[in-house]
Amino acid sequence: MLTLERLVLSQDDFLLTADWSVAAGEKVALIGPSGAGKSTLLMALAGFLPPAQGRILWHGADLAGVAPGDRPLTILFQDQNLFPHLSLAQNLGLGLSPTLRLTPDQAAQIDATLAQVGLAGMGGRKPGQLSGGQQGRAALARALLRARPLLLLDEPFAALGPALKAEMLDLVDEVAQATGAAVLMVTHDPSDAKRFADKTLLVADGVAHPPVPTVDLFANPPQALRDYLG
């Protein structure tokens, strides 16, 4: 379980507080106006921004001082999720063995995972040779391989068309099912939240509100969400 305990994040004159938990396997959407701090919150969870106050706990253990790579999570950034000079297989391989010394079993696992996300036989290609959707799939494939119990998505599919994005969200769903991971997904599109997330939390006015069931939130939106939805 991920717990944000009276967490305060601060960056220059920006301030964000959060005090809530996410249970294992839960799928949570983060919604709110741009600049409210959705990405900042994810960066803090991923270990790129130390909390000003409060703690981030994983199963009760404080994550402070744990290096980003050692945290129990995989994060997909808005872009630069793949090294452009490495092949897809190598990019995926980094999720299995940080030294890229792969056993035949691991290589087979990579091929299988690529096939699973619809990229069968593309292990030798470089990211530059792929479409945006394919790049997203490759990044998800690596998340699948890393199999961390928490998956953070910082709008990695924002650039994709609705149909493609829907496909990707289904894929995220599959990945989450397969790994049993909890998912925290930043989005600015209410339909993403409705389609994908059990719960949604609103980030607005310096507060990341506790997650509530998505259906309830949109049935009875608070003022800040109404402002955002317009």
């Binding site: 991923a46 270990g47 790129f48 290096a67 980003p68 790579g69 050692d70 995989t74 994060i75 950034f77 630069q80 999720n81 090294f83 490495l86 190598q90 980094l94 999720g95 940080p98 030294t99 890229l100």
Partner: peptide, 19 residues
Amino acid sequence: DYGRLTASLGLPRRTRLRF
């Protein structure tokens, strides 16, 4: 460009250097 990705993957120093 890739500092965060590298860190989030927890690549050890030698891998980072080589790959």
